[in-house]
Amino acid sequence: MSDAPTTAGDGSRSPKAENKMGLWARIKLFFRQIIGELKKVVRPTRKELGNLFVTVVVFVVIIMAIVALLDVLFGELAFVIFG
């Protein structure tokens, strides 16, 4: 096996090859990978965003109600026990 830097078929570099790269080459590679990942991002439509917003708000209200109910129950239980 040779020590020459190799790349996999998918364009990624092996960890051994990245260690032999200079500092600036690694920084450039890092930013190229960031840009490549950002290009894969799919932004939600306005309707999807509205649906997600409503879903989150409803979920938060339900959790708040559960926590408030438990708070009242435990408060009453503490009042009964400690008078």
Score class of each variant (00 low, 15 high):
4 A>D: 15
38 L>V: 09
61 V>W: 09
39 K>G: 02
40 K>H: 08
29 L>N: 05
47 K>C: 08
58 V>T: 10
22 G>Q: 08
49 L>K: 08
38 L>Y: 05
3 D>K: 14
23 L>A: 12
51 N>Y: 13
40 K>L: 08
32 R>V: 08
66 I>H: 02
38 L>T: 06
38 L>F: 07
61 V>I: 14
24 W>D: 14
54 V>S: 14
29 L>R: 01
26 R>N: 04
63 I>W: 06
14 S>Q: 10
21 M>E: 08
48 E>W: 03
17 A>L: 00
59 F>N: 12
14 S>K: 12
36 G>V: 00
51 N>F: 13
39 K>S: 03
10 D>N: 15
4 A>Y: 10
18 E>G: 07
55 T>S: 14
59 F>E: 10
26 R>E: 08
41 V>H: 06
52 L>C: 05
68 A>R: 06
20 K>W: 07
49 L>T: 11
26 R>V: 04
66 I>N: 04
4 A>T: 12
11 G>K: 03
64 M>C: 12
30 F>E: 02
10 D>W: 02
66 I>W: 04
69 L>S: 11
20 K>N: 01
67 V>E: 03
3 D>L: 15
60 V>S: 06
33 Q>V: 03
15 P>N: 00
36 G>N: 11
26 R>D: 00
14 S>V: 03
9 G>Q: 14
50 G>V: 10
25 A>W: 00
63 I>P: 01
33 Q>K: 15
35 I>W: 02
12 S>D: 09
7 T>R: 15
62 I>H: 02
39 K>Y: 07
45 T>H: 02
45 T>L: 01
47 K>W: 09
10 D>L: 00
19 N>H: 10
50 G>T: 11
5 P>H: 01
66 I>Q: 04
43 R>E: 12
39 K>Q: 06
49 L>H: 03
12 S>L: 13
21 M>D: 02
57 V>G: 01
32 R>W: 09
25 A>S: 14
44 P>Y: 00
25 A>H: 05
66 I>P: 02
6 T>Y: 11
13 R>E: 14
27 I>K: 06
26 R>W: 01
1 M>W: 08
56 V>Y: 10
62 I>W: 11
44 P>C: 05
33 Q>I: 02
27 I>Q: 05
49 L>M: 12
13 R>H: 15
